[in-house]
Design a protein around this nucleic acid. Structure first.
Lengths: 148, 148
DNA sequence: CAGTATCCCTTTTGATACTG
DNA sequence: CAGTATCAAAAGGGATACTG
């Protein structure tokens, strides 16, 4: 039991792939689980904010508009569990807890950041596409295809 | 109304930033909305799969393990609306619908892909971190801090 | 301050049935 | 085949109260 695999999902680093770049898509695949975590609304924001500096709980809470105390706690616990964030408790009173990225977290941050940058760069295009889609959808609803 | 901004959230391309790399975190910010879309479980998988080739609806459905017909439809509609995916209907019977990335979708794909690759590369590390976290958590529960 | 615990409402999602 | 519509189940998330 030294490698402690109790109920881990299957690893599918793709050795049995018939297609060149066909990765795992199996639901029980570890990669799917991790992507779900990484592609989480709050996780994304926390990781993006912990760029190079530590932040206190309350600081994160204040900075991330709209996050509840509960969700921030839950998110930080998950990130800590995944080894992406390091949590440091100072046994003072009142308590003080610092959060910072681990080296693993930093490497993920770089990827996340390119996603944020992409989004910032293309937000106008997406917005325009949405407007056009909605306009077209409206038109089609207006003039019923089946002649009156 | 040519630039058709009806109720779009505020654009915060960061001109008023006091800190160097402090991006928008406002809840009503367009970037937040787009990230929520992009960082979606099914969106991520669809975009990752539509790499360079078109796929039919049923093909996507079969390939993505665990997706329901409804969720795949919803996801594809959102992606189409955002201008990331192009939907082509062939008026044959039975109908045939092809999906492919737009140029905008391709540019996002590159970013998404680096995320998938990162995840594949670090899944073992994360898995280990989780095991250790859980082990520590169990230990602390076993031996109650308050004697006896 | 930084949580944890609880209740409860909202949104998301899956299953099922029906249609062009 | 590729959807749409509907309903019920489940998860997500907020508000509040309490604690070391």
């Amino acid at each position: 039991m030294e490698d402690g695999t109790s109920k881990e999902p299957s690893y599918c680093t793709g050795t049995d792939d018939d297609q060149a770049r066909q990765w795992d898509v199996r639901e029980d695949c570890e990669v799917r689980h991790i992507l779900d975590r990484v592609a989480d609304k709050w996780s994304l924001l926390v990781i993006a904010l912990l760029d190079r500096r530590t932040m206190r709980f309350s600081e994160l809470r204040r900075t991330i508009d709209g996050v509840s105390q509960r969700m921030l706690t839950v998110t930080l616990r998950q990130l800590e569990r995944d080894g992406l964030v390091k949590r440091t408790v100072y046994p003072t009173v009142p308590p003080r807890v610092d959060y910072e990225l681990t080296s693993l977290g930093i490497s993920l941050h770089e990827v996340i950041n390119s996603l944020v940058i992409w989004t910032e760069a293309h937000q106008q295009e997406i917005s325009t596409a949405r407007s056009e889609y909605d306009r077209r959808a409206t038109e089609e609803t207006q003039l019923q295809p089946t002649a009156r």
